[in-house]
Write a protein that binds this DNA or RNA. Structure first.
Length: 708
RNA sequence: GCGGUGGUAGUUCAGUUGGUUAGAAUACCGCCCUGUCACGGCGGGGGUCGCGAGUUCGAGUCUCGUCCACCGCGCCA
């Protein structure tokens, strides 16, 4: 089958991106409806060109090679002509000779000539260089800026590649100059002109095309533009106005480059996963609420009044079902939806690279994740060392105060609870009595006493107070010994132990956090990061990956005796028979990059009895389990293979790779913090008729839109 | 739901202790200008100071409410 795409692959010359469009136009001209397939159009064009004969000949040749190759190398068979050439050099040689001879001729004689006539440009702006001097080129793009000197007019023309200077001199071409005098910023131009060197001293070293310019001899104002609502490229412009006119915002070079990078990353992900035998499968967007813990976005059903679909929070259950189907290796670059409040790194709809595989161990899955990340980073121009470091959940919590440690800097937390056992301060002594539920943590900041003024220490205290600390005790290491209010409670022996345990040096400061484990770890972990930020200890150019492994299966819900799954309830427990449910660990693992949770995964439960026991520990009744995910439980009855996988937050990944402060910068059309779209004004009220059809009545009017 | 920051010309901002006609830059419009590249020069138009109350002789400025945007907390297993 020879379609347009494969025909253009064989072109010996680059084909204009407009080729496809032109063929559509052409097809119209010869009265082929535009909705016809490429194949139909190809044939229509070929009829017109009288090249049906060649088409048939190619088809036969291709088919015979396919058959021959299949026999010659069974598993390496492919329909891709390019791969054939690699696989069987001889066949490839003959093949390409034939193709060159016939196809190229055909293109030159008919199709390509036609495209050249119709194409709106011969080059992209910034692709032109000194080698093109003397050539007549055709360009199309936007007016980045114009400089009208009364006589001569300069225009910086922009397309996605960059800028080039156009010159309209009345002496060269009066007509073009007259048209040029009407030009304003962001007009769309189609230009024909001659490339020439700029004169001595007229070069602009800041421009890639600064040594040349294009003398315009034909100028078409293809479209005009209103004055811009904001200045492109002005870094101070408010984000709301940029979001309202996002399509203009995206015209900026930096924006284009961000999304170009994002595209490269996505393609790299697809390629590497394809290489490892993973199948890309799309799972439903209209689905049943999957129990991920976040609020669902609901979609009312017209056919079933009063019933709702939920948008997926992740494809979790579907990918597990695909494993039961024996697909063995699945991936998807999947859109996920969670109706929770937004943050700089959180959007209500976001993208995950979602992966699942069968008959695998945790090690296998982690290896795939590492290969995937390495491929993505390589595609984005960064070297990454694999395998990544690992840390257990427990160690991470104790040393860094959270399960997503930023390892670009040190500042580990130290346990000092034992030193306060017999101290004279009642509060500390009381806390130190219960080592299992409480913590007393020390954060030594080398040189911190020199760096932190009293005012800064106060600020740090205010900082931790926001996260539940009652205060922030500290010890300063001065030339003449330790200083600080809590010293008087400690025995000399305890102080000596602390000195050696923390390796205290003159100029250091040590902060202490004491209280219940959860609170102390949380605020001391945050303090650690805050201190590093203030001391500028974070190398922004480093990528520190780490696996956090051996997660507990459950944690107690705050203030209750209810267990909840730390990861999710389909995660395989390591030791389900353990009596203390909090001590049950799971085959779950998170991948952390620079203190940000990039993703995570687990080995899943593939046996019904274990799944039922987990539900029962979680306090989920049989009926509830059946109602919510009966389909998964059913599937586990039919020979579910052992399986596991992971998901990566693609937006966050791109945020880190492009060094953006906000996830909005790597999403083409993001929502604001109140989950609205300033461009489309979504969400918005709908017609009464629409609601009626859905069987829905609004109880209260939504909040007034008085602002408009 | 809560805390913080902000909202003045299309845009980015200034606006003193509450006091005359709310300014600048840029963009826009007009005129002039043949080597600029953030071109330049001269002139012009453009404001419900987010919205609504209140205090006051008088509010961009003070108070309260409200809306919007951003940052964070809660929430997001």
């Amino acid at each position: 089958m020879v379609g347009i795409a494969s025909a253009s692959q064989r072109e010996q010359r680059p084909v204009s991106p407009y080729a496809h469009q032109n063929i559509t136009l052409f097809a119209k001209r010869i009265e082929i409806a535009p909705q016809h397939t490429d194949h139909a159009r190809t044939h229509a064009i070929d009829d017109y060109l009288g090249t049906m004969f060649f088409e048939c000949a190619f088809h036969c040749i291709e088919k015979s090679f396919e058959l021959w190759c299949r026999r010659a190398k069974n598993d390496a068979y492919t329909t891709n002509g390019q791969s054939l050439i690699h696989l069987i050099p001889l066949a490839g040689m003959i093949y390409s000779i034939i193709l060159t001879k016939f196809c190229y001729n055909r293109a030159t004689n008919h199709q390509f000539t036609f495209i050249t006539e119709m194409a709106l440009r011969t080059h992209y702006c910034a692709d032109i260089n000194e080698n093109n001097v003397g050539e007549h080129v055709e360009l199309a793009g936007w007016v980045n800026s114009y400089r009208d000197h009364g006589g001569i007019i300069f225009i910086d023309l922009r397309d996605r590649t960059g800028l080039i200077q156009l010159v309209c001199d009345p002496a060269d071409n009066e007509k073009a100059h007259k048209i040029a005098s009407q030009i304003r910023d962001e007009y769309v131009l189609i230009v024909k002109g001659l490339v020439r060197m700029r004169g001595e001293g007229l070069e602009n070293p800041r421009l890639k095309t600064g040594k040349i310019e294009v003398v315009v001899d034909e100028l078409i104002i293809e479209n005009r533009s209103e004055p811009m609502p904001f200045t492109l490229g002005d870094p101070n412009v408010g984000e709301d106005i940029r979001l309202k006119y996002r399509y203009l915002d995206l015209r900026q070079k930096e924006m284009f480059e961000t999304f170009q990078l994002r595209s490269k990353a996505a393609i790299a992900a697809r390629n590497i996963l394809d290489k490892h035998g993973f199948l890309e499968v799309e799972t439903p967007i209209l689905t049943k609420s999957t129990p991920e813990g976040a609020r669902d976005y609901l979609v009312p059903s017209r056919v079933h009044n009063g019933e709702f679909y939920a948008l997926p929070q992740s494809p979790q259950l579907f990918k597990q079902l695909l494993m039961v189907s024996g697909f063995d290796r699945y991936f998807q670059i999947a859109r996920c939806f969670r109706d929770e409040d937004l943050r700089a790194d959180r959007q209500p709809e976001f993208t995950q690279i979602d992966v699942e595989m069968s008959f695998c161990t945790q090690e296998d899955v982690m290896k795939v994740a590492e290969e995937l990340l390495k491929a993505i980073f390589t595609a984005c121009g960064h070297e990454v060392q694999i395998p990544f470091n690992r840390i257990t959940y427990h160690e991470s919590m104790e040393k860094y105060g959270n399960d997503r440690p930023d390892l670009r800097f040190g500042l580990e937390l130290s346990d000092v609870i034992d030193l306060f056992e017999n101290c004279d301060n009642q509060i500390f002594a009381e806390i130190a009595k219960y080592k299992k539920i409480n913590r007393i943590k020390a954060l030594k900041v080398p040189g911190g006493d020199t760096a932190f003024s009293r005012k800064i220490i106060k600020e740090l205290e205010g900082f931790v107070t926001r996260f539940g600390a009652k205060g922030l005790a500290y010890i300063q290491v001065k030339e003449d010994g330790l200083k600080g209010p809590i010293l008087k409670f400690l025995s000399d022996e305890a102080i000596e132990t602390m000195k050696s345990r923390l390796d205290l040096q003159v100029g250091d400061i040590v902060f202490f956090g004491a209280g219940d484990k959860k609170t102390v770890l949380d605020y001391m972990g945050r303090l650690r990061t805050e201190v590093a930020r203030r001391l500028d200890l974070i190398d922004e150019n480093r990528f520190e990956f780490v696996w956090v492994v051996d997660f507990p299966m459950f944690e107690l819900e705050e203030g209750t005796l209810h267990l909840k799954a730390l990861h999710h309830p389909f995660t395989m427990p390591k030791n389900i028979d353990e009596e203390d449910a909090e001590a049950i660990e799971s085959d779950a693992y998170d991948i952390v990059l620079n203190g940000i949770e990039l993703g995570g995964g687990s080995i899943r439960i593939h046996k019904l009895d274990i799944q039922e026991r987990v539900f029962s520990l979680l306090g989920i009744s049989d009926e509830e389990a059946k109602e919510k995910f009966g389909f998964l439980l059913d599937a586990l009855k039919f020979g579910a293979p052992p399986h596991g996988g992971f998901a990566l937050g693609f937006d966050r990944l791109m945020m880190l790779l492009s060094k953006k402060e906000s996830i909005r910068d790597v999403i083409a059309f993001p929502k604001t913090q109140s989950a609205t779209c300033l461009l489309t004004h979504a969400p918005s009220p709908v017609d009464e008729a629409q609601l009626k059809e859905l069987g829905i009545r609004i109880r209260k009017r939504p909040k007034s839109d008085a602002s408009e």
